[in-house]
Simulated scan of single mutants.
Amino acid sequence: MTKDKDIANCPICSSLEEKVISELLKVIHRKSFPKNSLIFEAGEEITGIYLIIKGSVKVSKISAGGKEIVLQVLGAGKTFGEGSILGQEKNSDTFVANENTEVFVLPKRSFQEILKSNAALYQSVVGSLIRWLNNLNVVIENINTPSAKERVWMHICRLKEEQQQAIIHLEGKKHDVALMLGLRPETFSRALHELEEEGQIKMNHKQIQVL
């Protein structure tokens, strides 16, 4: 897949003019991360915006009790690091390659220069941050939903809305999706099994058909 096609799939860049895309293509560079490798950890300086072109990235933080809380699993086409463009100096979360992953990096300073003359690009960055805040609200909602089966069903419904397909795909490992929902992996699997027995879904590995 060509670089311009990859960046055209970026939620920040997809609605931009060809001229702006051309400017971005001049400054981006590709990086690869092996499975389970650290992309950056909480407290590190953010160097720019990252666009995932292959693989997936697990976003997490450590609770006061030392427990890992998975906030999100980002797949191809998703971005992170947008806060750096709007003045966030250090990252508050840890990002790890969930599998062999390739990303495009839009350097912070280069991006800010392009941003000065392109108001639409600024709006796209703000929109991306709003989507990130909405995801944090989902994490909080999961914590406040006592029923494991209800948490799993709500997550499946959100994926169906996002992916807009009859058969949806779980992004990331089941173990990480379970942690993101605040569940033990065995509890997550049991809830999926219960939903399948009730005729709500049909499972095929990480693919789910919503019935």
Rank of each mutant, 00 (worst) to 15 (best):
T47V: 12
N91F: 08
E198K: 13
N137I: 00
I143N: 07
D4T: 14
L170F: 05
T187N: 11
G182R: 12
E198M: 08
P11Q: 02
F188K: 07
T101R: 09
A97V: 09
S117F: 01
L136E: 10
V152N: 09
I201P: 11
S92A: 11
E102G: 01
Q164D: 15
N134P: 00
G77F: 00
I49R: 02
I85K: 06
N135P: 04
I156G: 10
H155P: 02
A42D: 15
S14L: 00
K61L: 10
N144K: 13
I114P: 12
H175K: 14
L170V: 12
N36T: 10
G81Y: 06
L115T: 12
N134E: 13
L183Q: 10
T2D: 14
L24H: 07
V73N: 11
Q112C: 11
F40Q: 10
Y50P: 01
E102Y: 01
S147D: 15
L38R: 04
E197M: 06
G48K: 00
Y50L: 05
E44T: 14
E18L: 00
S60A: 08
S128C: 07
G43Y: 10
Y122S: 12
F33I: 06
S32V: 02
Q123P: 02
N91Q: 15
T2G: 09
Y50S: 04
M154N: 15
L74F: 00
K173C: 04
L24I: 15
S37R: 09
E113A: 03
V126T: 08
M154Q: 14
S60N: 12
V57Y: 09
N91T: 15
Q209N: 07
N135M: 02
E102Q: 09
I39F: 03
I39K: 04
D6A: 05
P107Q: 06
T2N: 12
L195Y: 13
Y50D: 02
W153I: 02
